[in-house]
Amino acid sequence: MIELQDVTRLFGTTRAVNHVSFMVPRGSVFGYIGPNGAGKTTSMRILATLELPTEGDAFIEGLSSVNDPDRVRRRLGFMPDAFGSYSDTNCAEYLDFFARSNGLVGRERTRRIRWVMDFTGLRSMAEKPITGLSKGMRQRLCLGRALIHDPSVLILDEPAAGLDPRARIELRQIIRSLAADGKTILISSHILSELAEMCDRVGIIEQGRLLANDTVAGLKGNSQTHLDLIVVIDGETETAKTILSQWDDVSDVVELNRTLQFRVAGNRQRQIEILHRLCDARVNVLEYRVVDESLEDLFLKVTAGKVQ
């Protein structure tokens, strides 16, 4: 379990994190979204015991990252956005070093290193110096380092950055599998479509303040002020267009072939009502659907003008 309790972090007079609170239950994936400089990395670093909050506290598995950082670190795998490399070190030695540093000994250590190498697809790179790795390979190694001691909580800051599309899809599956295995995951990314698919909940942060914290579906429901609907008509579209134009709550009616797209004020509950009204007006509806909002749309909607 991950928990931030009313955390504030000041850098001089700048509030990098401003009274942020949220909780991520065990075995779930929490997506952390925000523009650059919003406070994502700072709050992740506070959880990872690398930064101290000016106010509030952060907890991992109920242990304070402020007062018991040593206990928190045993349960935590952190993948920062920047990769710190060592000269004259190859991938296997790098993982071996972090395995030793995390207290793994004997067979357990060697097995764990093998597993991480297979898992991250780095086996063929075992003897390659890490300074010569590509960005994507470094990301894999960084993820491997975070997983080496089998932590129960993972904090991943931009893990998909630099990965090719195939590796991104695999990463998504891996994260879901890790969550299914009981790991609690906090993940930030700029690729919002990916987060929508893998996260149980999403938090949107801007200028240090948490603006929203809900499931993607919940966010869509809460933030909706209108619906964009698409209707495919059997027969004459002109009549249907005229009928729609007469209704006060309908706007922006656009016709394309036998398809009409229009906007209705209100949320998803209006969807059925509009269909009933169309049928009552004897419009022959062949297909009827709502245009789904993407996480990008939601993000822009939630952040627009809230913190200025």
Partner: peptide
């Protein structure tokens, strides 16, 4: 446990 659950998955390579 993670080893078991995600043994079939990897970030490519091999």
């Amino acid at each position: 446990g993670a080893e078991h659950a995600v043994a079939e998955l990897s970030l490519g390579g091999g």
